[in-house]
Design a protein around this nucleic acid. Structure first.
Length: 104
DNA sequence: GCAGTGACTAGTA
DNA sequence: ATACTAGCCACTG
């Protein structure tokens, strides 16, 4: 088995997997747990490179504003919204998450 | 090995 | 309150 993914990414994915049901986490929180401590960009980059083979609840990952970032495809963004609603996570009018951010 | 890029954050205007 | 700019580190070409 090849590593394929760097340890940094693995930590990021692991941190995301640690997010419980019905909760969400910000890039900064994940970055902190992953050891990047402050570098939320790498978290976003890791998610962009996120292999579909991994069962990562990336939809629970949001930015500091409590919003879903990136994904130029509205369809993809809609999928994330559906997944979050399936997790009892609610959205506000502005499309922001109900700020049920998980505290490590 | 160098340069460019990136799903962010925080600070300033 | 919103909008824009600068900074940080890791991965890819």
């Amino acid at each position: 088995m090849k590593k394929q993914l760097s340890e940094t990414y693995s930590k990021i994915y692991d941190a995301i997997k640690c997010i419980p049901y019905g909760k969400v986490a910000t890039y900064g929180q994940i970055a902190e747990v992953a050891g990047l401590q402050g570098q939320a960009r790498l978290v976003g980059y890791a998610l962009f490179s996120l292999p579909e083979d991994m069962d990562i609840p990336w939809h629970r990952v949001i930015n500091a504003k409590g919003e879903i970032s990136g994904l130029p495809d509205p369809d993809w963004r809609n999928i994330q919204k559906g997944l979050l609603e399936a997790e009892d996570i609610q959205f506000n009018k502005d499309g922001r998450v109900d700020l049920k951010v998980y505290r490590w």
